[in-house]
Design a protein around this nucleic acid. Structure first.
Length: 349
DNA sequence: ATGCATGAGTT
DNA sequence: ACTCATGCATA
């Protein structure tokens, strides 16, 4: 616990005039093929390698194998299809009490010629792979990166109704890349900002933010008040992730200038004892978060270690095996993949 | 601080 | 069907 709800009691009479201006800054310059490259540059298979045979993970592996076996079988599809493991009832934690609110959602796609230095590719447990990954995605060509591209973020999302959500749109950032930095690393194509700078900034940001007595959530909503073209508010989650560097490199770079702008404004306002209005309100439907039980999660992790990108069929098989909705399993894998790509380690400068 | 989820934009 | 940026809900 450390609920730092030291919210500032700013009270600005801003008659809830929620700006619902669906702005759009189409600045996304998608560079084709960037995905392939990204994949190619992906860090190497993380976990297990030596752990697996360490002893403690044996059960895990065994489980994965067992499950994998089923997977394979289901492929042949002879007959049957129903969990050998009796489940009294569906651990359907999946109650999607989805509220009807198509609420906030942002989307964006920033394509940057990121080129991760990390290049690996060696999977140890090939024995398992042989059977499980019959058709593993073959080669990653990798190689050429596109030219300097602009990294941008954009977020549409219109608040359908008012209330709970905050509008936000983002924008892009400028890219003035005036590389004056010393070129280091041959395998690193200077993206734009060194993770080192980002790391330093994130840390400074957090400290100064706390100094101002502002919470992450405050920052998020306050961003909208900055009136930066195309920039709306962000959630506490995102601010938190920024501070802890648990965002993708691109995302970090995109957010930095925005948060930097806020920080400057906030400190300026603080000096003159003025605070920006805070807008927020909310109170409507709640959505239930699915919770995957530990055993199921362990199985998923075991699978992931072997095949992080299972086919739709495999996902279905796994889902059935674990008594989870296929979509839940699919999303789980997606999120798992995203986690692997987060900063922190990808910053191997 | 994190897990599960949505959605625009890509492939 | 996937990636990526984000968010709500929750531990």
């Amino acid at each position: 616990m450390m609920s730092l709800n030291s919210k500032q009691a700013f009270s600005m009479p801003h008659g809830g005039s929620l700006h619902v201006e669906p702005k759009y800054s189409a600045l996304h310059s998608a560079s084709p093929g960037s995905e392939a490259m990204r994949r190619a540059c992906l860090p190497a298979p993380p976990q297990l390698q030596s752990n697996i045979f360490g002893g403690l993970d044996e059960s895990l592996l065994a489980r994965a194998e067992a499950l994998a076996a089923v997977d394979i079988v289901s492929q042949s599809k002879s007959h049957h299809h129903h969990p050998p493991h009796h489940s009294p009832f569906k651990p359907d934690a999946t109650y999607h009490t989805m509220n009807t609110i198509p609420c906030t959602s942002a989307a964006s796609s920033s394509s940057v010629p990121i080129s991760h230095p990390s290049a690996l590719a060696g999977t140890p447990h090939q024995a398992l792979e042989g059977e499980l990954l019959e058709h593993l995605s073959p080669g990653l060509a990798l190689g050429a990166m596109a030219g300097p591209d602009g990294t941008v973020v954009s977020t549409p999302a219109h608040a359908p109704h008012m209330a709970t959500m905050n509008p936000m749109h983002q924008a892009a950032l400028s890219m003035a890349h005036a590389h004056g930095l010393p070129s280091h690393m041959g395998c690193m194509s200077d993206v734009d900002a060194d993770p080192r700078d980002l790391e330093a900034f994130a840390e400074r940001f957090k400290q100064r933010r706390i100094k101002l007595g502002v919470t992450q959530a405050d920052v998020g909503s306050a961003l909208a008040n900055l009136k930066i073209p195309g920039v709306g508010s962000l959630s506490q989650s995102t601010i938190c992730r920024f501070e802890s560097l648990t965002l993708s490199h691109n995302n970090m770079i995109a957010l930095k200038p925005i948060l930097q702008a806020w920080l400057e404004e906030a400190e300026k306002s603080h000096r003159e004892k003025l605070t920006k209005p805070e807008l927020f309100n909310g109170a409507e439907k709640k959505r239930k978060r699915t919770s995957i039980a530990a055993p199921e999660k362990r199985s998923l992790e075991a699978y992931f270690a072997i095949q992080p990108r299972p086919s739709s069929e495999k996902i279905a098989a796994i889902a059935e095996k674990l008594d989870l909705k296929k979509n839940v399993v699919r999303v789980w894998f997606c999120n798992q993949r995203q986690k692997q790509k987060r900063m922190k380690y990808s910053a191997g400068i």
